[in-house]
Computed example of a mutant assay.
Amino acid sequence: MKEPVHIGRHPSARPDLERLLGEVAGGDQEAFAVIYDATVSPVLGVAHRVLRDQAQSEEVAQDVLVEVWRTAARYRPERGTAINWILTLAHRRAVDRVRSVESSIAREHKAALLDHTPEYDEVTEQVEARFEREQVKRCLRTLTDIQRQSVTLAYYRGLTYREVAELLALPLGTVKTRLRDGLIRLRDCLGVSA
């Protein structure tokens, strides 16, 4: 059984993280516990400087230390010290979290904009509606007074043929004929096929 490594007895009693990472790569849980205790504060500090949120910083620190456990075999001493490798993992993970949050906010903003964007071009529709109204008004002016009054009362005010006849004091048959003739003239004037 290995001799336990004690941290904090005096300033020079720092664990050999490079050696311990090699042991963690072999599955040594005690070595990982020592690495965890020695690095959790600096990892949390790096994460908090990037994220500025305690809860997210703690999540990132936890993720980084789990990654150290899983990927200890990837550490290469010739590329730098063990603590620098671990803190680089922490910084990258924190930056990834910031980017993820920013992307999420951007997606939500874009989705909100799409929710408020009409499915059609309102300006085009308004211009077309105005053009159609003007064309209908012009064509209505080509009708006789009785035709125009009958069409207006029946189609714009929603009156029945009988109500139009009573209002204009005309026989029902006359109103029906004037409406039919007026609608035919409107159809021809507007260029609508039958």
Rank of each mutant, 00 (worst) to 15 (best):
His10Ala: 14
Ser100Tyr: 08
Asn84Thr: 08
Pro77Ser: 07
Val164Gln: 00
Asp63Met: 04
Leu168Met: 00
Leu44Ile: 14
Leu143Phe: 04
Ala90Pro: 14
Gln54Cys: 15
Ser57Tyr: 12
Asp181Met: 12
Val40Cys: 12
Trp69Ile: 02
Tyr120Ala: 00
Gln62Val: 15
Val68Ser: 05
Arg52Ile: 09
Asp16Val: 09
Gly158Met: 08
Arg52Trp: 15
Asp145Val: 09
Gln147Leu: 01
Asp37Lys: 13
Ala72Trp: 08
Ile35Pro: 05
Arg185Glu: 13
Asp16Glu: 06
Lys2Tyr: 12
His109Tyr: 02
Leu21Cys: 10
Asp96Ala: 06
Arg9Ala: 12
Ala111Met: 13
Gly27Met: 08
Glu128Met: 10
Glu102Gly: 00
Arg185Phe: 03
Ala111Ile: 06
Gln126Asp: 10
Asp121Gly: 09
Glu23Leu: 11
Gly158Phe: 09
Ala154His: 03
Ile146Ala: 06
Leu113Val: 07
Gln56Leu: 15
Leu21Ala: 06
Ala129Phe: 07
Asp188Thr: 01
Val95Ser: 06
Pro15Gly: 15
Asp145Leu: 11
Leu143Glu: 01
Leu190Asp: 06
Lys176Leu: 01
Pro11Phe: 04
Gly8Met: 13
Arg130Leu: 14
Gly158Asn: 07
Leu172Val: 01
Glu30Phe: 02
Ser104Gly: 01
Ser150Trp: 05
Val64Arg: 07
Ser41Val: 15
Ser193Met: 08
Gln62Phe: 11
Asp63Ser: 13
Arg162Trp: 01
Glu67Met: 02
Glu67Leu: 04
Asp115Tyr: 05
Arg97Gly: 03
Glu122Tyr: 10
Arg74His: 12
Tyr36Phe: 09
Gln54Val: 11
Lys110Leu: 02
Thr88Val: 10
Arg180Leu: 03
Glu67Ile: 01
Val34Leu: 11
Ile86Thr: 02
Asp188Leu: 01
Tyr161Ala: 03
His91Trp: 12
Glu23Pro: 05
Gly182Cys: 05
Val43His: 10
Gln56Asn: 14
Val43Tyr: 02
Leu183Met: 13
Gln126Pro: 10
Val24Glu: 00
Ile105Glu: 02
His10Ser: 05
Leu44Trp: 14
Ile7Gln: 10
Leu168Pro: 00
Glu125Arg: 02
Leu153Lys: 00
Leu65Lys: 02
Arg92Tyr: 05
Asp28Phe: 04
Arg178Thr: 15
Phe131Trp: 15
Thr144Trp: 13
Asn84Asp: 14
Gly173Lys: 00
Val66Met: 03
Ile35Asp: 07
Val46Asn: 04
Arg9Asn: 13
Arg141Lys: 11
Ile7Trp: 09
Val68Gln: 13
Thr142Leu: 15
Ala55Gln: 14
Ser104Glu: 04
Ser150Val: 10
Arg79Gly: 13
Ala25Asp: 05
Tyr75Trp: 04
Ile184Ala: 07
Gln54Arg: 14
Arg130Ser: 11
Pro42Tyr: 08
Thr81Glu: 04
Asp181Arg: 12
Leu179Met: 11
Ser100Arg: 01
Leu190Ser: 10
Ser104His: 05
Ala194Asn: 07
Ala73Thr: 09
Ala154Pro: 05
Glu30Pro: 06
Asp53Gly: 15
Glu132Lys: 14
Arg162Glu: 09
Val175Glu: 09
His48Leu: 09
Leu17Trp: 12
Asp121Tyr: 08
Ala47Gly: 10
Asp181Gly: 07
Asp121Gln: 06
Ser12Cys: 15
Glu108Gln: 03
His48Phe: 15
Ala25Cys: 06
Ala154Trp: 02
Ile146Lys: 08
Gln56His: 14
